[in-house]
Design a protein around this nucleic acid. Structure first.
Length: 269
DNA sequence: CGGTCTACCTGAAAGC
DNA sequence: TGCTTTCAGGTAGACC
């Protein structure tokens, strides 16, 4: 489920509870996630959390001896709650703090991950990633140049982590609708003028979702509910057959690379 | 290299 | 009602 905004909101949500705190213990209830959780993760026990950052959709919890990297996959979520709260089904990893709180990773489908990164090293999984969409490294010039001679559809191009990270299925759909671009259009055949429209829209769409999530999700430490999910105003995603907000035409659904694409045939050319 | 497809998993929803 | 099928917000790795 989580795309970049959800991961960023999770980071914002857990940080005040965890930053500067000492890890009392780490418990791995289900080591078989996307990859087997490495034993080195246990090195973080009794260490102080000095930084919580994000790269792409990965959360990086840093201590003096190394960093625990968490990914939420398709179905993961994080909660910081009192250690006395009973475990739920699919609570795979717990990072218990000296302050009585515990971070729990719950992930039914287990497409998520927990990795270990040594100090001053970069985990291999970060090596091939493109720029962060909300930084200046992701700009019109960059995306336009990258797109030249690319035959792939613009939607799949946008979702390619080697091009730009953090644009998942929902926000690719939404951004292309707002930019009026047909998702099937070849990335290499789209004019610079249209990329000038698209790039700021991608940034705005993501940052709006973060803002919205941040305000919706004030209660990260609650014991029930589902932190990390927030109601969003989606213009096309999940609205197949419903009227386009602009022209009332019924929205069309197609499949691109086994993922669902919803768009307006009239507004997106 | 670029493009395409598969695999990993559970559970909710849709189909019959 | 209950069984079966489909689909889900991600992404590495295999293949051509």
């Amino acid at each position: 489920m989580p795309e970049l905004p959800e991961v960023e909101v999770s980071r914002l949500g857990i940080t005040p509870h965890m930053l500067g705190e000492t890890i009392k213990s780490i418990r791995i209830h289900q080591p078989q996630l996307r990859w087997r959780v490495p034993d080195e993760v246990m090195l973080a026990e009794h260490q102080v959390i000095c930084e919580i950052t994000r790269r792409s959709k990965y959360l990086i919890i840093t201590t003096a001896v190394g960093s625990i990297i968490l990914h939420l996959g398709m179905s993961g979520n994080l909660r910081v709650i009192d250690n006395s709260v009973p475990l739920k089904k699919h609570d795979h990893i717990e990072i218990e703090l000296e302050n009585g709180k515990v971070l729990r990773l719950n992930d039914p489908r287990r497409f998520g991950a927990c990795l270990w990164q040594n100090p001053n090293e970069q985990h291999a999984t970060f090596a091939k990633l493109g720029p962060e969409p909300l930084t200046d490294d992701f700009d019109v010039e960059y995306l336009y140049e990258k797109s030249r001679n690319r035959k792939t559809a613009i939607k799949q191009f946008l979702m390619d982590n080697a091009i730009v990270v953090g644009v998942g299925n929902i926000y690719a759909n939404e951004s292309l609708f707002k930019a009026g671009i047909n998702p099937k259009r070849e990335a290499g055949k789209i004019s610079k003028k249209r990329y000038q429209l698209l790039v700021p829209i991608v940034k705005q769409t993501l940052s709006d979702a973060i803002t919205q999530g941040g305000t919706t999700l004030k209660d990260f430490a609650q014991t029930d509910g589902k932190p990390g999910y927030f109601a969003q105003q989606l213009l096309v995603y999940g609205r197949k057959g419903e009227p386009c907000v602009t022209c009332n035409t019924q929205l069309t659904e197609i499949r691109q690379g086994q993922r669902s694409t919803v768009y307006c045939k009239k507004c997106q050319k």
